[in-house]
Amino acid sequence: MDPENDTRILEFLLLGLSEEPELQSLIFGIFLSMYIITVCGNLLIILATISDSHLHTPMYFFLSNLSFVDICLISTIIPKVLVNIQTQSKVITYIGCITQMFFLIHFIVLDGFLLSTMAYDRYVAICHPLHYTVIMHPLLCVLLALGSWIMSALHSFLQTFMTLQLSFCIHTDIPHFFCEFNQVVHLACSDTFINDIVIYFGATLLGGGTFAGMLYSYSKIVSSIRKISTSQGKYKAFSTCASHLSVVSLFYCTSQGVYLSAADNQNSHSSATASVMYTVVTPMLNPFIYSLRNKDIKRALRKLIGKETT
C-alpha cells in the first residue's frame, strides 16, 4: 500500500488562530477564560431549571437541553486547543480528528434542532395559549428532544462515514484551531464530489429546514402579537420569546457567515477566526442572554446561589 494514502498513520496539523509564539499565551488565557465561563454559566442554567419547580415547563426543559449541548460543543474543541498550546504541539491524530468532527457536527446540528423546537414551543404558547398544556405535554417534549438527538447523531454518522472513505496525504495542514468539517473534506487527496453532494444536501435539508421552521413560527408569533390590543400585552408576549430570538440570530448569522466566507477563502485563517463566534462565543453568551432577559431564571439563580452560600 502507498504510505501516502495510508490513513492509519495519518496525522493532521492544526495551525490554530495564529502561529506567532508571543500570542500563544494570550490565546491560551482567552480560551481558558471563555471555556470556564461557558461551562459554569450553562451549568448554572441547568441546575436552576432542575432545582426550581416553577421552571419545570417545556420551555425550560428545552433550554436545559440547549445548555447541556453548548457545554458538550465547547468541550469538544477547547480542551484540545489548550493542550496543544501548552505542549507547543499542533498535532491531532487521524482518529482524534474524525472523532472531534463527529461530535462537532452532532452538537452543531443538535443546536439547530433544539432552537427550532424552542421556536415551536413559543409559537404554541403565544398563538394557542389555551391549548398549550395539552399540546406541549411532557411526553411530546421528551420525544421532540429525543428525536433531535437521534436525527443529529444519524446525520453526523453519515457525514463522518463519508469522510472515512476518503484518502488523505500525510501531515495535512488544517488552517483552523479544530477539525472543521468542510476544510478536512477538501484537504483529501481523493475525489470529494459525493461528499460535497452529501454536505450540501444535509445543509439544505437540516439547516434550511430548521431555519424555515423557525421563520414560520415567528411569522405566526408576530402576527398574533400584532392582534393584541394593549401595548403591555404586546410587550409581555414579545418578551417571552425575545431571548430565544436573540440566540437564534446570533447562532445562525455567525455560522452561516463562516461557511459563506469559507467557501471563498478555504486556505486562510479568516474562517478560523470567524468560527470562534458560533463555536465558542455563542455558547458563552447564551446563559447571559437567557438570564438577563428572564425574571424566572434570575429568581431561580438567586435561590440556587443562596442555597449554596448558606
Rank of each mutant, 00 (worst) to 15 (best):
M1A: 00
P3S: 12
N5C: 06
T7F: 01
R8Q: 09
R8H: 07
L10Y: 07
E11L: 07
E11R: 01
F12A: 03
L23I: 14
S25Y: 10
F31A: 03
M34T: 11
I45D: 13
I45A: 13
P58L: 12
M59W: 05
F61P: 09
S67R: 05
S67V: 03
F68Q: 11
V69Q: 01
L73S: 04
L73V: 13
L73Q: 04
I77W: 03
I92T: 07
C97A: 05
R122S: 04
H128R: 10
H131W: 14
I135F: 11
M136A: 03
C141T: 07
G147P: 05
M151Y: 04
H155L: 04
Q159L: 14
L166H: 01
I170T: 11
T172S: 00
F177C: 08
L187P: 03
L187G: 00
A188K: 00
T192P: 02
F193C: 07
I194P: 03
D196P: 14
I197N: 07
G202S: 04
A212G: 08
G213K: 12
L215G: 12
S217R: 12
K220A: 14
S224P: 15
I225G: 15
S229T: 13
Q232I: 11
G233C: 09
K234M: 14
A242R: 09
L245R: 10
S246Y: 03
S246G: 00
V247A: 03
V248W: 07
L250C: 06
L250E: 12
Y252S: 10
T254M: 02
Q256T: 05
A262M: 13
S270Y: 08
T273D: 08
P283M: 15
M284A: 14
N286G: 12
N294S: 07
K295W: 09
L301G: 15
